[in-house]
Design a protein around this nucleic acid. Structure first.
Lengths: 341, 341
DNA sequence: TCCGGGTCGGCAAACGTTTGCAACAGATTA
DNA sequence: TAATCTGTTGCAAACGTTTGCCGACCCGGA
C-alpha cells in the first residue's frame, strides 16, 4: 500500500539500488537517470522508510530530549529551539518529562537509548555515576550540569548568582536568604556556592532555605520562613519560586521591594509581567538548546567532547530596592542600577 | 555490538522465534522456557530493536504531537499530559512546533506521517481540506478544532466565551471588544461567534480587533485601539494577549478593572500571578492531551471516530469590575460573582 | 583491433525482528 | 489401537532499505 523504493524503481525502469543512490549518494548516479528517478518518486509520493533505513545504517535520525518538567516555563524555549534546530538538520526529536524523578529519568534514557542517535539530558537529577554509565550506551550531551569528561553546555549561573548577590549587597542588604532548588540539581549547588562565597567575602549573611521543588508553591510556602529569618533580600533558585514568594509576601502585606527584595533566576517570559517586575538572572535557554543539538550531532562525526559555558545576565527590574545598610547616595533604584557596571 | 535477539537465543539455547514470542506473545511459550529466556535477556541487557520491529509490523509505537508554538504556555501542560499518558502505553512522542505557519505544519505532518502510528494535531492552522487529505495518509486526532468526520477533542470555548460575556454584561458593560486571535484558528472563530451572539442578544456592542498573533506583544499593541474604541470591557483570544493588554493599559495609567475590564482565555499558570489577577476561562488542557492520546490509540483498534467536547470554566478574579451600566446593587465584585450561577 | 580507465547500474547480502506453517510429543477420545 | 487435539518449538520468509562488489559499456589512445 505505501509506495516503496521498489515501486519507484519499477516505474522509472531502473534497479532499486539506483533509486536508493539517487537519494543517499546522488553523485554516483547519472544526472539524467537521477532526474528521471526523482520525477517518478515525486509523482508517486515516495518517502523513504526511516525504520528500514535505520535498521541497516544504524542511524535513526532521531534524538531524545529529556527535561525535568515540560510545564516548567524554563524548558519550553529550550525545547522549541532544539526541535527547530534539529529539524533543520533532518532530525526528529522525542521529548520526555521525568517529573523531577531520577528513577523515571534513568528508565527513560534506557528506553530511548536504542531508538535515537543521541540524547540531550537537561538538568538531570541522576548521580554522576549513573550518567557516566549511560554515556557508554548512547551519545549524550548534558545541559546545565558539568561532569568531567562529558560533553555539556551550561549556563554560567554561578556568575549570575554572584552578580545578583553583589547587586543586593550594593543596595545595602546584609541578611540574605537563598531559597534553594531541588536536591540533585547541579545548578542549585552552583548558585548556593557562588552566592555563599560572594556574601561571605563581603561579611554578609546568607541563610539557605531548602531544598525545595522548583515550583511556585514552594516559593509561596517559604514566605513565613523568609520573614522569620529576618532577612531583607532573597535570591531564589528560579523565577517560579521567586514569583510565588512575591505573591505570598504581598498577600501578607509585605512590601516588595520596600521591606524585602527578591531576585529570581531564569528570566522566564512572565517575570517581566508580574508586579513588581522581577529582577532576575537571564539564561540563554534557546542558545543552549541549539548548541546542545550541534554538539550532539557533531559528536558522531569526530570524537570531540567540549564543554560550553554560556554567559548569563542580571536583569534589574523592580523587585529589588535599597536595604537597611544602603549608602546614603544610592537610595533610589536608578542609582543602584549603575552599581552593576 | 548491541545485543540482539540472536544472542539471547544462543545464550538460552532456544530458537530466536521463541525469544521473540517471549516478548510479543508470552502465552505461546512454556512458562519455564519463558523465565529462562527472560533471565538471560535481562542479564545480557537485551532491548528489542524498535526499528526492526516497526519494519515488519508496520507499527512504530511512536506518535507525533504538533503544536503551533511550544513556548506558548497554553501548550506545555497539554504536551506533558500527552507524553506521560503515551509513555504509560509504551509509546514515544515526537514533539514539533510549526511557529503558527500552515506551510510548516503541512510539511511536518508529511515528514512525520511514515514514522509514527498517528498524529495529534493541536490547534492546526491548515485548511479543512488539507487536514482531510492528510487524514488519508496517517491516523489523526485534531485538538481544538472541529472538522466533520474527523476525530477531535475540543474545549468548549464557545461556552466559555458566552459565560465571559454574560459576566461582563452583568457587571454593567455594554461596549465590548473582542481582541481576536490568529487567522485560521477554529477557536478564534468559535469565540467570536459565541461572544458576538451573546452580546447582540443583550443589545450590547462587540467590536472585533484583529486578527492578531496570539502573543503578549499584540495584546500590548492593541491598547491604543481598545481605548480609542471607547469600550469598557475586553475579551481576549488568550491570556497571553490579555496580560499584554493589561500591562500596556497600566503603563498608560488606565485602571484595570476601574476603567476597563479584561477577560482572558486559557487560564495559563501565570494569569493568577499578574496583578490584577486575570479573570479568565479555564481550559482543561491536560485532560485534552490525555483524551487525544487515548482516541488516537483506540483508533487503530476499532474504527470509531468520536468527537469529544471538554467543558470550560469561567474563573472570576480581579481584572473585571463594574461597568458604566452597573445595576446599583451589584457594584462590587462579590455580588457580581454570584451572577455566574 | 585491442587495451586501459572511468562511469554507471545491477546483484545480492545484510540489518533485527515477527509470524504463518509445520513438526513433534504427550494427552485425550473414539 | 488409532485418531484427534493441544501446547510448545523450530523453520524460513518477509519487511524496505543500504552498500560492497562486479560487470557492462563507452571513450580515447596506441
Amino acid at each position: 500500500m505505501a509506495v516503496t523504493i521498489r515501486d519507484v524503481a519499477r516505474a522509472s525502469g531502473v534497479h532499486i539500488s539506483t533509486v536508493s543512490r539517487t537519494f543517499s549518494a546522488p553523485h554516483l548516479v547519472n544526472p539524467e537517470t537521477r532526474s528521471r528517478v526523482l520525477a517518478t518518486a515525486e509523482q508517486l509520493g515516495y518517502r523513504p522508510n526511516r525504520a528500514a533505513r535505520a535498521l541497516i545504517t544504524g542511524r535513526t535520525h532521531n534524538i531524545g530530549l529529556i527535561v525535568a518538567d515540560i510545564a516548567n516555563p524554563f524548558f519550553p524555549p529550550l525545547i522549541k529551539a532544539a526541535e527547530t534546530h534539529a529539524r533543520r538538520r533532518d532530525y526528529h526529536v522525542f521529548v520526555a518529562d521525568t517529573d523531577e524523578d531520577p528513577i523515571v529519568e534513568l528508565d527513560l534514557v534506557q528506553a530511548l537509548a536504542k531508538q535515537v542517535d543521541g540524547i540531550l539530558l537537561c538538568s538531570p537529577r541522576m548521580t554522576d555515576d549513573q550518567i557516566e554509565q549511560l554515556r557508554r550506551e548512547v551519545p549524550l550531551v548534558v545541559v546545565n550540569r558539568l561532569i568531567t569528561g562529558l560533553p555539556a553546555v551550561v549556563m554560567d549561573v554561578g556568575q549570575g548568582a554572584r552578580e545578583a548577590v553583589r547587586h543586593l549587597l550594593a543596595l545595602g542588604h546584609r541578611d540574605l536568604v537563598y531559597l534553594a532548588g531541588p536536591r540533585g540539581s547541579w545548578t542549585n549547588r552552583e548558585i548556593r556556592r557562588a552566592a555563599g562565597a560572594t556574601a561571605r567575602t563581603a561579611g554578609a549573611d546568607l541563610t539557605v532555605l531548602g531544598p525545595n521543588q522548583p515550583v511556585e508553591e514552594t516559593g509561596a510556602a517559604a514566605a513565613e520562613a523568609v520573614l522569620a529569618s529576618g532577612a531583607t533580600a532573597v535570591l531564589a533558585y528560579n523565577d517560579l519560586m521567586a514569583i510565588g514568594l512575591l505573591q505570598a509576601l504581598q498577600d501578607r502585606g509585605v512590601d516588595v521591594p520596600g521591606q524585602v527584595s527578591v531576585v529570581g533566576i531564569d528570566d522566564i517570559a512572565y517575570s517581566g509581567l508580574v508586579r513588581p517586575r522581577l529582577t532576575t538572572v537571564a539564561n540563554p535557554t534557546a542558545a543552549a538548546g541549539r548548541t546542545a543539538v550541534d554538539m550532539l550531532l557533531q559528536q558522531g562525526d569526530d570524537g570531540t567532547t567540549g564543554q560550553v559555558t554560556l554567559r548569563t545576565d542580571l536583569i534589574i527590574r523592580n523587585s529589588t530596592g535599597p536595604g537597611p545598610y544602603a549608602p546614603a547616595v544610592a537610595i533610589d533604584a536608578e542609582v543602584a542600577t549603575t552599581v552593576k557596571e
